[in-house]
Design a protein around this nucleic acid. Structure first.
Lengths: 210, 210
DNA sequence: AAATGTGAAGTTGTTCACAGCT
DNA sequence: AGCTGTGAACAACTTCACATTT
C-alpha cells in the first residue's frame, strides 16, 4: 500500500543530496566550476558510485569525460529539495532548547526562517529577548493557516509532545523536526525527523568504550 | 560484562537501543515492571520482531509467555551502551550554537556532563555566563589527557572544523558529535555522529512539497 | 495460552563492472 | 582517455514463520 509520491527513492539518498549541496556551495565559493563525481564524493564522504546513483534518481546531469557543472548541479539539487524558495517554519515550545534554537542563526544562513514561536505561556519571563514573534498556543491554528506553514520545529517537554503534535497535524503541519525525547505517533503522510542529542551521545558512548 | 568489539551488530540497532531505553525509563517511572516486546516496540515506533532481533545481539533477556523485566532490561541496555557511569564530554567552539548547547540542560538529564568548553578566544565577551569552565584551545590537550576524555561536541565554524578535529584525534578523542556543516575526514577508529539542523529541515522540505 | 528467540526469506540499499558518451 | 550512467551482483537490514519455553 504505497501512497507516497516518490516511494522508490531511498530516504538516505535525500539526506545525501543535502550534503552534496553543501559541498557544491563550497566549491562554487572557491571559484570551481566543474567537478568529477570522484572529487565531490570524497568531499561528501561517500563512494563516487553512490553519488552517481543518487543523482540518477532525478535524471542525468553530468558530462561524460568531464564531470558536473558545479552551479547547475547545485541549482538542480536545491530545486529537488524544495529550498529554492524560503520555507516558513514555526517553532513550538520555547523552553531551554527552544530558546537556544531561536538564538541560533544557523537556520537563516541555510535558507530557513523561523517566522514565529509558540508556547503555552508566551508571557513567561525568559532570560533573552527574541526577534522572532512569540505567541500563545491558542494562536497557532490561525497563524499556520494564514501563512500556509507546513513545517514545525518541536521543542516541548516529553509529556506534552504527542498532544501538541496531534494539534499541529490537525491544522495542516506535515513536516516535524522533533527534538523532544519521545517517539511521536503520526499518520504516514506526516514526516518526522528526530534529533535527540542525548541519543547521539549515547551512541558515541557505545563505540568509544572500544 | 562482555566488551569485545562486535562489528556484526547493525549501527541502527545501537541507535534503537537508546530509544528502547527511553521507553523503559518511562515505563519504570509509571511503575510498570514487565513489558512484552509488542508493547515496548509500539512505544518505540518499531515492529516487535525488530526489537527482539535487536536484543538477541546481546543475549536472551525475556521470559517466554511473559515478556521483559523493565528494570533489568533497562540496566542491561545501559550497560551495553556504556552509560551506567557518567561519561565526561568536552565542547569545542563556544559560538552561537555552542553557547546554546551549553545552556541546554538536556545532556545532564540524560547522563552526560559537559565538563569543559574550549574556544579560540575564551575571553571574548559573550551574552551569557556559563557554569561550565571555559578554556583556550592551548589547554585542551592537557585537559583531555588529565580527565581521560574520549568524547567531544564540535561546534566550531566550518573553516576551522577539520583542523580542530585533527587536533582532537591526536590527543585521544575517539567520539565526536559534529554540529559543524562540513563532512569530517577521520580515521576509521574514530566515530563521528553528524547533527546538521539545516539538513534536517531541508530533508523535511523535500517531503513536505506534497 | 502467551510471548520469546531465531533461521530463512524477503526487502532495501550499496557497490561493482563495464557499456556508452564527449 | 576520462568520466558518467546503470543493470547486475552483493551486502545489510528487516520481517516472517514457527519452534520453543514458561
Amino acid at each position: 500500500m504505497k501512497k507516497t509520491s516518490r516511494p522508490e527513492i531511498p530516504r538516505k539518498a535525500i539526506y545525501r543530496l543535502s550534503i552534496y549541496l553543501r559541498c557544491l556551495q563550497r566549491l562554487k565559493a572557491n571559484g570551481i566550476r566543474t567537478v568529477a563525481s570522484e572529487a565531490l564524493a570524497a568531499a561528501a564522504g561517500v563512494k563516487s558510485t553512490q553519488l552517481r546513483k543518487d543523482l540518477t534518481y532525478f535524471g542525468q546531469f553530468g558530462t561524460r569525460g568531464l564531470g558536473y557543472d558545479v552551479e547547475q548541479l547545485g541549482a538542480l539539487i536545491s530545486d529537488v529539495l524544495g529550498t529554492t524558495r524560503l520555507q516558513p517554519v514555526i517553532l513550538v515550545g520555547v523552553g531551554n532548547l527552544g530558546s537556544a534554537l531561536l538564538s541560533y542563526r544557523g537556520f537563516q544562513q541555510e535558507g530557513f526562517e523561523i517566522i514565529a514561536a509558540f508556547d503555552q505561556f508566551p508571557e513567561k519571563k525568559r532570560s533573552r529577548k527574541f526577534a522572532t514573534p512569540m505567541l500563545g498556543m491558542d494562536k497557532v491554528e490561525e497563524f499556520v493557516r494564514k501563512h500556509a506553514v507546513k513545517m514545525a520545529v518541536l521543542t516541548v517537554p516529553p509529556e506534552a509532545a504527542q498532544e501538541v503534535v496531534n494539534t499541529l497535524i490537525e491544522i495542516g503541519i506535515t513536516g516535524i523536526l522533533n527534538f523532544s525525547t519521545i517517539t511521536l505517533q503520526v499518520p504516514e503522510d506526516v514526516m518526522v525527523n528526530n534529533v535527540n542529542l542525548a541519543i547521539e551521545l549515547e551512541n558515541l558512548s557505545y563505540f568509544v568504550q572500544q
